[in-house]
């Protein structure tokens, strides 16, 4: 939107040309061609909305980029310091070097005890599989029942005399 004083001037210029002034008439008269402004005004009108914002946008973009660069220059990104990709052999070299250092110092790294259970690659296959067969369940339950009974029946059996003749 044009500022108001300009609009008024435009209206005056339009009147002097003898054309009906409207919001589409040009603000400044083309110095090269003195032809009536209406057609060029129309074509300009068509171009302007697109032509004008583009440089504006790049200005904004470059300003933003500048701010970004300035900020990046002032920030130490610790995470990105060591971000270059390590090759496989680099890993090996480093692990060897570290192992040597540890050997030199003589530090004992505690070994993790092997786990009783371990992960399996596709748990859903096992989880969706059939449960324990009825036969096995009965077997273990029967064993436990008879074991509980047997345990409750445990008692000391008298086999030989507790008091034995000594030096008879």
């Amino acid at each position: 939107m044009l500022p108001k004083p300009l609009q008024r001037r435009q209206w005056a210029a339009g009147m002097s040309d003898g054309d009906a002034a409207n919001e589409r008439t040009r603000l400044l008269v083309n110095p090269v061609s003195n032809t009536p402004n209406i057609p060029t005004a129309h074509s300009d009108d068509y171009v302007n909305p697109y032509a004008n914002p583009v440089p504006k946008k790049t200005d904004e973009q470059s300003a933003l980029n500048r701010i970004l660069q300035e900020t990046a220059a002032n920030v130490i990104d610790v995470g990105a310091l060591d971000s270059h990709n390590l090759e496989q052999h680099e890993y090996m070299d480093r692990s060897k070097a570290y192992a040597k250092r540890i050997e030199v110092i003589g530090v004992q790294i505690p070994d993790h005890p092997p786990c009783l259970l371990k992960d399996i690659p596709a748990p859903e296959r096992v989880l969706a599989g059939e449960g324990l067969p009825q036969q096995d369940r009965e077997m273990v339950t029967d064993m436990m029942n008879s074991a509980v009974t047997a345990l409750s029946e445990i008692q000391v059996e008298h086999k030989e005399d507790l008091v034995v003749p000594f030096l008879s």
């Binding site: 064993m143 436990m144 074991a147 509980v148």
Partner: peptide, 15 residues
């Protein structure tokens, strides 16, 4: 290895 506890006893069967 099938494990079950019942009362005071825990039992396991290896198959």
């Amino acid at each position: 290895c099938i494990i079950q506890r019942q009362g005071p006893i825990v039992g396991a069967i290896y198959k």
